[in-house]
Design a protein around this nucleic acid. Structure first.
Length: 930
DNA sequence: CCTGTCACG
DNA sequence: GACGTACGTGACAGGG
């Protein structure tokens, strides 16, 4: 049928489909070879939905998907910066582009593109021709650049919101009729495509002007008549730029095409071809759906590549709690051990009485060898029904703990059998306390962290929900919460088994899903060198613990209590009445309502802010704020440190055992908790004394080694700032050098204050500096701070380049990377609103903080072997510092060896152009060691 | 359970 | 054109 009256042409904006599909879906990969395939999957789903819905009076008789081809078009000849600020195409998307063309053809839909023209021009040309031939046109896109084409039987369809955009719709968006849209765009410009327009004029103003003058040409000719002086001036001055902008936004209706409208007539897909394509892409669900529609059998899946050998998770049986076995005797356990030996790998999970691995008692172990094939081995459940009649006696039907562990030990320590866990450090410690050293291991939490750090949490519940679409049994269903909470040994075996075995089953399924993807995500090295080997290292550090002198803390607590009481009396007297000093709400009312001090600012909750910076400013007005600050400092030290730390001294070891989370911090840093030993005071003299309670036992000393300025060194390296690198090579004072370079002050005339300001800027740069932030930090006017920053960037333009490049990379790839290849995702980077600022600064900071974190991780992994011949133990990590305990007479040797490991930790993977320098100290307390 | 505050790198 | 902003953590107290 020749195209004409009664025909309806649908033109699909292919690029818009692709980008929408890419950003809407998680980074799916083809199972057999890891090829990124998410955008193709989304694209096919969208095409399929389109085909399905194409019926009824509006149905198309002709259809085409139109793509861009190449990035250089005739518009670049007009204006070479056109679309110059476009982010680069994400690397995961690039290989998918040709596949979307193939997909279109597989659906038997016309697929058109022209070198040198944008898809929009082809769409414009086809629209014009179809309209001229008397037919209707629907442009399937929400791109506002296409709105100029609407009218005379041409409409747009926003495929996501499923709303049609006609002439009225365009008027709503642009305030003018479609034929004047280009005039408005020419004035308003477009930051996305880098169309300049008229500076300071947006869509609102532009449409007003065009409404008033009728057209752009008329407006420019009569620009002298405009009343507002500024506006008049802009239009007169930028006339050429505005005219150029119009030519850039004006779509070309005369694109030379090597096909005609008749070639676009709708055709049914060939089931053979379409199913073959979908099958090659390994889209199971869609293949099945379409096969059903054609009433055919779905074709057999292609052979999976041998290195993975893993069936698709979605094809696996759903989780069935009834299928799990409870292992109650040696015969049954031996069957499982044989099964595990044959499989070569096993998922393991321990159930215990506590989250504190140093106090927890083993209650049972679950194992899984294949999806759905899992068991629970109860070992220490108590008798009774989980009710009032509980006793301490063991429940019936459990293997003796000793016997079970003796059977399990060879398997758990067998170098030929991989033990898979979720947060393996926990299970490693539990079993280590029972004399079993689990190895080798894999950890699904860390597999997820290495691949998806920054995208979501890595707890089992999150992972199961996200990757297996399964909701795990919540632990509180078994042990309850709050006052009624019981320990796991009080849970009956029949209730415990489904929960426990499920954990092993889920862990195994996650492993089969996540492990093969390591390589295609290019984080194998990250996982193998920075995550997995850290598990036993951290486990041993945590088990070692650090000796804390309770008496020292307790004496300090007493002294602090007395001091606080004195402050409180004074504070109440100066406030005029007693109140709770620890309540910011009450304090705010006293300061700002009752005493009438100036500068009271209420936050979003309606409460006055009483932070240290606010009180600091008020200290010149009144005596009270200073007293509050002093009281707060003591109160913090007492509650968080001298009081709380005592409760963390393990009664058996007399030491404090922190817990490090490996996958907690987005940047690759560790986090310490229960207690947090990474924030023990040091900056204030009062607080520093807390460190006197961290001691070495008799005959031993503490040694502290810390990287000097590691983040600034990394910044100097990645940004390639020659002056800073030189300064580091020569061991100079980096902040003084910065100050000298910025302000032109010779080093020997440097004042502490100028140096202090340069130091603040140096740190600010690492954090993604802003005038506001620096101003607040230095307590100087914002303009002054901005001037400092401008001077800094003028002096070190490489830093600005680095920052811009980092943000650009993040925007294109939704992630940044450390020098060691750690990927830190930045999902908010392309968001709009205030969140964008945060994401930008975080993206600038992450490669620097993350690279430093990688360096010390590498040092820690190598440390154990390096100090094997020394009577020493690594105890703590504080981001850029390692704390050791060592026999007194071997301290010097340890310092030399450990320093060498730390200073060379980046080699050989990364060769820094600045040296890493480690400072060392020793003493009988942590305070002295610093 | 959330917010404000403050300890660290 | 205004808004709101230094990066990363964890613990405690107060207050619904």
């Amino acid at each position: 049928m020749a195209f004409g009256k009664g025909c309806h042409l649908h033109l699909i904006d292919g690029s818009a489909f692709i980008f929408r599909a890419f950003h809407a879906l998680p980074p799916l990969t083809r199972k057999s070879d890891g090829l990124p395939i998410g955008a193709v999957a989304g694209f096919c789903n969208m095409l399929d939905r389109y085909v399905e819905n194409n019926s009824g009076p509006d149905a198309a008789t002709h259809v085409a998907v139109i793509f861009d081809k190449g990035s250089i078009t005739f518009r670049n000849e007009l204006f070479d910066a056109y679309k110059a600020n476009r982010s680069e195409m994400p690397e995961d998307l690039r290989p998918q582009i040709p596949l979307t063309r193939e997909a279109t053809k597989a659906f038997n839909i016309a697929c058109e593109e022209m070198q040198g023209w944008e898809a929009d021009d082809i769409i414009a040309t086809l629209s014009c021709r179809a309209r001229d031939a008397g037919g209707r046109v629907t442009i399937v896109s929400s791109d506002k650049d296409l709105m100029q084409l609407v009218g005379d039987g041409v409409e747009m369809l926003d495929p996501m919101k499923n709303i049609r955009i006609d002439v009225d719709g365009v008027r709503q968006k642009f305030g003018v009729d479609p034929d004047r849209v280009v005039d408005v765009q020419a004035l308003a410009g477009d930051s996305v495509d880098n169309v300049p327009g008229a500076p300071g004029i947006g869509i609102k103003t532009a449409s007003q002007l065009i409404e008033e003058y009728g057209s752009l040409e008329e407006l420019l000719d009569r620009a002298g008549e405009i009343k507002q002086p500024k506006r008049r001036q802009i239009l007169l001055e930028h006339r050429a730029q505005i005219e150029l902008s119009k030519r850039l936004v004006q779509l070309d209706c005369d694109t030379p095409l090597d096909f005609g409208l008749d070639d676009l007539e709708i055709r049914d897909a060939d089931p053979e071809v379409l199913l073959d394509f979908l099958n090659r892409m390994e889209f199971r669900t869609l293949t099945r759906k379409i096969a059903d529609r054609f009433d055919r059998e779905p074709p057999a899946l292609p052979e999976a590549a041998p290195q993975t050998g893993v069936p698709a998770a979605e094809a696996e049986a759903p989780i069935d709690h009834g299928a799990y076995e409870v292992v109650r005797d040696a015969v049954a356990l031996q069957v499982w051990l044989d099964r595990i030996a044959a499989a070569g790998s096993v998922a393991v999970d321990t159930e215990t009485t506590s989250l504190d691995e140093m106090q927890a008692e083993l209650v049972g172990i679950s194992l899984a060898t294949e999806p759905g094939v899992a068991c629970y081995v109860p070992l220490a459940h108590r008798a009774g029904g989980g009710d009032l009649f509980d006793t301490d006696a063991l429940a019936e039907g459990q293997m003796p703990m000793e016997r079970a562990l003796e059977m399990l030990r060879p398997m758990l320590e067998d170098p030929a059998i991989l033990k898979i866990g979720q947060n393996m450090k926990y299970d490693f410690k539990i079993l280590a306390r029972l004399g079993i050293e689990v190895a080798p291991i894999d950890d699904t939490m860390l597999l997820s962290y290495a691949q998806h750090g920054g995208l979501h949490g890595h707890g089992m519940d999150v992972l199961a929900d996200r990757y297996l679409n399964h909701q795990c049994i919540p632990i509180k269903d078994l042990i309850g919460t709050g006052k009624l909470k019981v320990t796991f040994d009080r849970v009956t075996i029949d209730k415990a088994a489904p929960y426990a075995a499920e954990d092993a089953d889920v862990t195994l399924r996650l492993w089969r899903l996540l492990k093969p993807r390591l390589h295609s995500a290019r984080v194998t090295q990250v996982y193998e060198t920075l995550e997995r080997p850290l598990v036993p290292v951290l486990a041993r550090m945590e088990m070692a613990g650090v000796k804390v002198d309770r008496d020292v803390l307790s004496r300090m607590s007493g002294a602090f209590a007395q001091k606080m009481a004195e402050f409180e009396a004074d504070i109440h007297a100066k406030a005029g009445r007693p109140f709770n000093v620890g309540s910011p709400k009450q304090l705010g009312e006293i300061l700002f309502d009752e005493l009438g001090l100036p500068g009271g600012k209420k936050g979003k909750t309606g409460a006055y802010g009483t932070g240290a910076d606010v009180l600091e400013d008020l200290a010149t007005e009144h005596e009270l704020p200073r007293l509050i600050l002093d009281w707060r400092q003591i109160s913090k030290l007492k509650s968080t440190y001298t009081d709380n730390l005592q409760t963390h001294i393990n009664p058996e070891t007399g030491r404090v055992h922190t817990s490090y989370s490996i996958a907690g911090a987005n940047t690759g840093r560790l986090a310490s908790s229960d207690p947090n030993l990474q924030n023990i005071p040091i900056r204030s003299e009062e607080g520093r004394r807390i460190r006197e309670a961290f001691v070495a036992p008799e005959g031993r000393v503490l040694v502290a080694l810390d990287y000097s300025q590691i983040e600034l060194r990394i910044l100097a390296h990645v940004a390639g700032i020659e002056e800073l690198k030189q300064a580091f090579r020569e061991g100079q004072d980096i902040h003084a050098i910065t100050a000298s370079q910025m302000f032109g002050v010779p080093l020997d005339e440097m004042t502490p204050d100028v140096r202090r300001q340069a130091k603040a800027i140096n740190f600010g740069v690492i954090y993604g500096i802003s005038g506001f932030g620096l101003a607040r930090n230095l307590r100087i006017p914002r303009e002054e701070a901005q001037a400092f920053i401008d001077t800094y960037f003028a002096r070190f333009p490489g830093i600005r380049d680095y920052m811009d490049a980092t943000v650009k990379f993040a925007k294109a790839n939704d992630r940044v990377e450390t020098l060691f290849g750690r990927r830190i995702h930045t999902p908010e980077i392309n968001a709009k609103g205030p969140g964008a600022g945060f994401a930008k600064r975080a993206a600038i900071n992450a490669p620097i903080q993350g690279t430093a974190a990688d360096v010390i991780r590498r040092a820690m992994v190598r440390m154990e072997a390096a100090i094997a011949g020394i009577d020493a133990r690594m105890l703590l990590q504080v981001h850029d510092e390692l704390l050791f305990e060592v026999a007194e007479d071997q301290a010097e040797r340890l310092m030399a060896v450990a320093r060498e490991v730390m200073e060379g930790a980046h080699m050989p993977v990364v060769d820094l152009s600045v040296p890493l320098v480690v400072d060392a100290g020793q003493g009988t307390t942590w305070a002295q060691a610093h």
